[in-house]
Design a protein around this nucleic acid. Sequence first.
DNA 1: TCTATTTCTTAATCTAGATTAATGCATATC
DNA 2: GATATGCATTAATCTAGATTAAGAAATAGA
Lengths: 156, 156
Amino acid sequence: MKQKKIKRGEFLQKAGELNSKIYHVKSGLLRSYSIDAKGKEHIFMFAPEGWVIADSCPPEVQTNLFIDALEDSIVIIREKDIQSEQKNVQPLVNRLLVLQKRVIMLMSASAIERYEHFIETYPGIAQRVPQKMIASYLGITPEALSNVKRKRITNK
Amino acid sequence: MKQKKIKRGEFLQKAGELNSKIYHVKSGLLRSYSIDAKGKEHIFMFAPEGWVIADSCPPEVQTNLFIDALEDSIVIIREKDIQSEQKNVQPLVNRLLVLQKRVIMLMSASAIERYEHFIETYPGIAQRVPQKMIASYLGITPEALSNVKRKRITNK
DNA sequence: TCTATTTCTTAATCTAGATTAATGCATATC
DNA sequence: GATATGCATTAATCTAGATTAAGAAATAGA
């Protein structure tokens, strides 16, 4: 049971690094956040005592989030694979990753960027569902989606 | 390995029901969505072939999402507890639930409602972090958060 | 096949929240 | 104690996307 003390302001992870660890917060307060193209910070989640904080991406993939301490804290460190190797857990982990990206997109991207991201996340689905459902997924109205698509064509 | 055919338009779950099942999509296309206070639908996620779709809430708690088929589909049905009983998986499940609520809030709630939800999700944390971090979590600017708080006081 | 209903697009107007900017408070630093 | 540096609030202006409305295109139902 590996344990670690971290001082306020100290980082456990920086976006772009590889990290196979999950942090269980024993005391203190951590946060994870992303930085968008304009350099703006978006707090993804807080983790006070009892919470778990980690990047949902697989250990061999570059992380998306920064994780640092807002107060002096103590965390227990565990490996990501302990879970993902277990039977039937992989789908959970996948869902977590999709949701993490979804939150980041909702927080930091414009309608047009979210549309691009939808196309990547669900290749081929745009052809199988009505436009109003895509709009509903993106969090915009069908009217706004029409505008987005028109702009995408003119700008490309 | 229980399997089920569902016709386009058929529901696997309606919000408010109890549901201990997880659906693995073998063929076809499903979606999950929430309905907000104004009656507006917000698609939470799509699930084409190979994806898993489910409500992240515990089996004994009322669900938040509707799940229905956008195309005739075949799903494999599994129980939620199979996973949650496994060691170290509970934190994953908790994180999934928090994220599911977070996405729903980002999609369907105003800044003021998201602020209320933040206070419930993280009791006491508002007193431990600067305002600008709360704003960053809510997806708004510190200036907008000031307005939200002022309105909250005058309206209560 | 011919309606009828739903879906998609375009355009005009409106609004929540962004941006910019100025001011008052704290908390550090010397 | 004086002076930065960062944080919170207020107000004026701006903008992405919402709302409303109307017409065109697609789908479904008889």
